[in-house]
């Protein structure tokens, strides 16, 4: 009777198979990690650039705010209302 080594299940062959699988997994994981690291670098750079852009916009917003605050509306021709009339707050039931 011929001995078929592929049909023999021995601890050595199982270990070898498992080690091979681990090695392939390890290589695959390394490749995966490398690609992720590359993507992460790109994303981080992009995020930082976006943050800097937002900071620029925020600086513009705050600068505009200061400009609006400083604006002398009387000098621009606007006048303070001659009279101010307050409307009594409507009762809650009136809103229904």
């Amino acid at each position: 009777m011929l001995h078929n080594p592929f049909h023999a299940f021995t601890p050595v062959s199982a270990a070898a198979t498992f080690a091979g699988a681990l090695f392939v997994s390890y290589v695959a994981l390394i490749a995966f990690v490398m690609s992720l690291a590359t993507l992460s670098v790109g994303f981080t750079q992009s995020e930082r650039s976006d943050e800097a852009t937002v900071a620029t916009l925020e600086a513009q917003y705050l600068s505009d705010l200061a400009m609006i605050t400083n604006t002398n509306y009387v000098a621009l021709g606007y006048a303070k209302p001659a009279t101010t009339v307050f409307v009594p707050a409507a009762a809650a039931t009136a809103l229904r």
């Binding site: 800097a52 937002v54 900071a55």
Partner: peptide
């Protein structure tokens, strides 16, 4: 709104 943040360049 940022009061202090980072710029990149």
């Amino acid at each position: 709104i940022s009061a202090a943040t980072l710029s990149t360049g």
